[in-house]
Nucleic acid binder design. Sequence first.
DNA 1: GTCTATACGATGATAGAC
DNA 2: GTCTATCATCGTATAGAC
Lengths: 173, 173
Amino acid sequence: MTDKKEQILHAALELFASEGYHTVSTSKIAKKAVVSEGLIFRHFENKKGLLEAILEYAFERMGILLMPILTEKSPIKAIEKYILLPFEIDKSEYHFWRLLFKLKWEIEYSSVEKMKPLIDKLSTSFEALNYKEPEKEAEVLNHIIESVSGGILKDGLQSQEILKDFLLKKYHI
Amino acid sequence: MTDKKEQILHAALELFASEGYHTVSTSKIAKKAVVSEGLIFRHFENKKGLLEAILEYAFERMGILLMPILTEKSPIKAIEKYILLPFEIDKSEYHFWRLLFKLKWEIEYSSVEKMKPLIDKLSTSFEALNYKEPEKEAEVLNHIIESVSGGILKDGLQSQEILKDFLLKKYHI
DNA sequence: GTCTATACGATGATAGAC
DNA sequence: GTCTATCATCGTATAGAC
């Protein structure tokens, strides 16, 4: 993070995440990153290019976060890990994930595609556990975790924490 | 909708819903409404005032939509009605609800408060049906429907329709 | 109630020097 | 790689005439 390009990326991430892409000006980003505004356009073609660089990084991070679930051999453990996911996110990364939730409605990106491997994993896990309709169980659990995650990012961990044990019990964990 | 004020409201709703509050300019709204830009500021103090007028209307509409659930005597029917809600929304009103989903992340408004009566209703319904932890069941169902609704608004009805019967079965309806 | 004209700051982006 | 200076355009908002 000693590099100015990194500084820009970092400042933009925080600002986009907390205030949204359209509301944040390049001038504001430059000030926060303590660089000249022009530099932003040298490193990234334009404002949208800056956003895309951040998104790329974000998706990479999401992949890393999901990896332990995708590689989990035990079906019950895979489901457990997914349920616990939103409750164990580090607070320092909230703004990071908030950005993805915000952008899902602000710009068009196919979250469906990105989540496909996860849904598949959950689906085979439920299948291994003899659930009647594993794909649908996977979709529903995904919906629950998605909305719980949104709740945590909007209103804080404590707003959802009571659901943690309840969900684990619900899925017999 | 013969009134120019109505025309502005209508145009702004459509534009905000499809493109977001911050991206849409007052000039664009004026063009779509076929009125002068200045008129917007006569009827509504400023752009934010216009948004608030729309939001007020939106919350009123949400109240109307939820009313049949809140007044439903049969607990099982109340739950059924709530599950069916996102699947039965008229396509012509999609942009309307999309606006609320978008704004939840774009500006700050307490969706939690607005949903309180619904959660309470679901909670007492689950209680009447002898569920062990009715409040939590209510929260989880609310999460499911919230995320399913989001899916429908983003990717269309058909993306979620397979879950309709599954959810009804899941809640023994 | 409605329109035209306009003020004026902010914004994304570029050019050129170091 | 980085900064300063600058620009054209857009965006919100106001004033005044009809």
